[in-house]
Amino acid sequence: MTVHAPASGDDDDASASSSISDVVFNVLEGYGLLGDDAVDATRFLRSSLHGFVDLETRGAFELPVDLERSFARLTESVVVALDTWSR
Results as ranks from 00 to 15, higher is better:
D22K: 14
S47A: 14
A81Y: 03
G59S: 06
E68K: 12
D83W: 03
F52A: 06
D11I: 09
R87Q: 13
F61S: 00
A72E: 11
P64I: 15
L33N: 00
S21A: 15
D37E: 10
D83L: 06
S15K: 10
R87H: 15
A81V: 09
S8Q: 04
P64N: 14
N26Q: 12
S19V: 13
F52D: 00
N26K: 15
R69C: 03
G30D: 04
A5T: 14
F44W: 05
D37N: 13
S21D: 11
A41G: 09
D36Y: 15
F44Y: 15
F44I: 03
D10F: 07
G59P: 06
F52Q: 01
L34S: 11
S70I: 08
R43F: 10
D83G: 03
T84P: 01
S15V: 10
D13C: 08
E56W: 04
G35E: 07
E29S: 14
S86N: 15
D54V: 08
D54S: 11
F25R: 12
V39P: 01
D37V: 01
V39H: 08
R43K: 10
L28C: 02
P64V: 07
R73P: 00
L55M: 13
S15L: 15
A72G: 07
D37S: 09
L67V: 03
R87Y: 09
S17R: 14
V27R: 13
H4T: 14
L33P: 00
A14N: 13
D11N: 06
D83E: 14
T75N: 04
S48M: 10
V3D: 13
S15W: 07
V23N: 09
P6N: 05
Y31H: 02
R73Q: 08
S47R: 12
A38G: 05
F61T: 00
S48D: 05
V23K: 13
L28R: 01
H4M: 09
V80T: 12
G59W: 05
S48K: 07
S17E: 15
Y31D: 00
D40Q: 13
D13W: 14
R58L: 10
V39C: 03
A41H: 05
S47H: 07
F71L: 11
Y31G: 00
V27L: 10
V79R: 14
P6Y: 04
V65N: 00
V53G: 01
L28I: 02
S70N: 07
V65K: 03
S19I: 09
F44V: 04
D13I: 11
S77P: 01
S77R: 08
D83H: 06
P6T: 05
N26G: 12
S19W: 13
T2R: 09
L67K: 08
V79E: 10
E76N: 08
D37Q: 10
S17C: 11
S77I: 01
L63M: 11
V78N: 04
S8G: 12
F52H: 02
S48R: 06
T84H: 14
S18A: 15
V27F: 07
L28G: 04
D12A: 13
V79H: 10
S8T: 09
